[in-house]
């Protein structure tokens, strides 16, 4: 049976808040003086007496101390008694301090056609110094996202990432769903703003593969400053109606891009002319779901081409 035991009002507090602890020394702790002075030590600080020490009705001694502002995120609070020229530690308690989670922000989601999953990411907000759990929550809805139809299984991120992937079987494509992030630790809970989205409206499209055609001069007379191009849509997104835009720039410092918009998503032969400013041009293409809502793909890898 140990001689002393610490009790803490709340083991985890908000940084800067006070905490009160008491240490009780049982009367049958034979090796100690009858009424030893109970001391406290925070981390490796100086030993200090409690605010008050009193004898309880059962003969045990109780010392109480209030730390006005806890400013360690983790600290050990020890209860000691003087012993010969030193001290004896009778008990030790771990103090933790931190903050309740702020609302996660910048929640965004992308639907990946290759993995058939909706991946959402967010910013967790300032450090809380406490174990904080983030959960991606969602439910199915109707057009306006006001009413909850049925909820979807919570998505718990893997090892403290700020991203989570909702599997295809939980999704109803072409229907709106509401998504948000909940953050929780012992000091509180918070939620991000809610997103209302149809997974198919946030498909992560990949750009087409842009190719240059080597036209037979007997069939197609050579025209100075022209290029023949072709492109095919990214296969997993082939079923999605898209429109594309092409950009090109002469290969010299400070040149501007020229944009060719409203192009089809698939083109077997596209003639691009007017390329007289430089021997070599850089070309890229990107696409977006259209006319239905969607997100631009990234630009395709650059092609360095030499016009005729």
């Amino acid at each position: 049976e140990s001689c002393g035991h610490i009790r803490i009002s709340v083991p985890i507090v908000r940084l800067g808040d006070p905490v009160t602890a008491s240490c009780i020394i049982s009367p049958n702790c034979s090796k100690l003086d009858q009424e030893p002075q109970i001391l406290w030590r925070l981390q490796d600080g100086p030993e200090q007496p409690g605010d008050r020490q009193r004898r309880l009705h059962d003969g045990s001694q109780e010392s109480t101390i209030t730390l006005p502002h806890v400013n360690h995120t983790k600290a050990f609070l020890s209860c000691l008694v003087p012993w010969a020229n030193s001290f004896q530690v009778l008990d030790q308690a771990e103090l933790q301090a931190g903050y309740p989670p702020a609302s996660p922000s910048n929640l965004s989601c992308l639907m990946y056609l290759t993995t058939n999953s909706l991946v959402c990411q967010w910013e967790p907000g300032p450090e809380t110094y406490l174990p904080t759990n983030f959960t991606l929550k969602s439910f199915r809805s109707r057009a306006d996202c006001k009413y909850q139809k049925d909820s979807i299984t919570d998505c718990v991120p893997k090892d403290r990432q700020n991203t989570c992937s909702i599997a295809r079987k939980h999704l109803i494509l072409y229907q709106n769903m509401v998504v948000w992030v909940q953050a929780e630790n012992v000091l509180g809970t918070s939620e991000s703003p809610k997103l209302c989205l149809d997974p198919m409206d946030v498909v992560k499209l990949e750009p087409p593969v842009l190719q240059v055609l080597d036209m037979n001069p007997e069939l197609v007379p050579r025209q100075p400053g022209c290029l023949w191009l072709s492109w095919k849509p990214w296969k997993p997104g082939e079923f999605i109606a898209q429109e594309c835009e092409l950009r090109y720039q002469p290969q010299f410092g400070g040149a501007n891009w020229t944009l060719v918009s409203h192009l089809p998503s698939s083109e077997d032969q596209f003639k691009l002319c007017g390329l007289h400013q430089a021997p070599v041009y850089t070309l890229q293409i990107r696409c977006i779901r259209s006319p239905l809502p969607g997100l631009w793909s990234s630009w395709s890898p650059s092609l360095q081409l030499r016009p005729t």
Binding site: Y174, M200, E238, F239, A241, P291, L292
Partner: peptide, 18 residues
């Protein structure tokens, strides 16, 4: 509605591909 028709066409193409 146009959006219903366009979405349905897209879904048909998606299923046909699969």
């Amino acid at each position: 509605p146009q959006s219903f028709l366009l979405k349905s066409l897209e879904q048909v193409r998606k299923i046909q591909t699969r």
